[in-house]
């Protein structure tokens, strides 16, 4: 891979991840449907995962696994720590989404609507 392509890819990943975060934030903050808010939160999570992966990428990188024939290629391995972080963050994001959806079910039973403007027993 030549230098130019690498730089384009690198900035593409970073820019794309920031774009995803912004799209998710827009959805979470402006949409009035509870389900759409949760989708927005998941998109923010996805953007951050991409950002972390982008940080750990190195030029001409290979998977950070020691396997036969690749014993001496540690210099080219991508950084494994962000990948471990992303795996953990995915699991956490899954748990939060599950809790959020179960709360939405409870809210729907209670109010018979998913519109956040109509669920106003408390001050927002």
């Amino acid at each position: 891979m030549n230098n130019e392509l690498y730089e384009i890819l690198r900035y593409g990943i970073l820019g794309g991840s920031i774009l995803l975060i912004l799209i998710g934030l827009y959805a979470a903050l402006t949409k009035r449907s509870l389900i759409k808010i949760i989708i927005g939160l998941s998109i923010v999570d996805g953007g951050i995962h991409l950002l972390l992966i982008g940080i750990g990428y190195v030029k001409n990188g290979t998977a950070p696994i020691f396997s036969p024939g690749f014993e001496n290629s540690t210099a080219n391995m991508v950084d494994p720590v962000p990948q471990a972080l992303v795996l953990t963050a995915i699991v956490i994001g899954f748990a939060v989404t599950a809790v959020a959806l179960s709360l939405v079910i409870r809210l729907y039973r209670h109010h018979n609507t998913l519109e956040i403007d109509e669920i106003k027993n408390l001050k927002w």
Binding site: I21, L25, A28, L34, I37, L41, V44, D45, I48, I92, V96, V99, A100, L103, V104, R106, L107, H110, I119, N121, L122, W124
Partner: peptide, 17 residues
């Protein structure tokens, strides 16, 4: 309580991001 909890979750989730 579900409403209070959802509100907490919304803020908590954005801040953990």
């Amino acid at each position: 309580s579900a409403e209070a909890s959802f509100k907490y979750l919304l803020m908590g989730s954005l801040s953990s991001s």
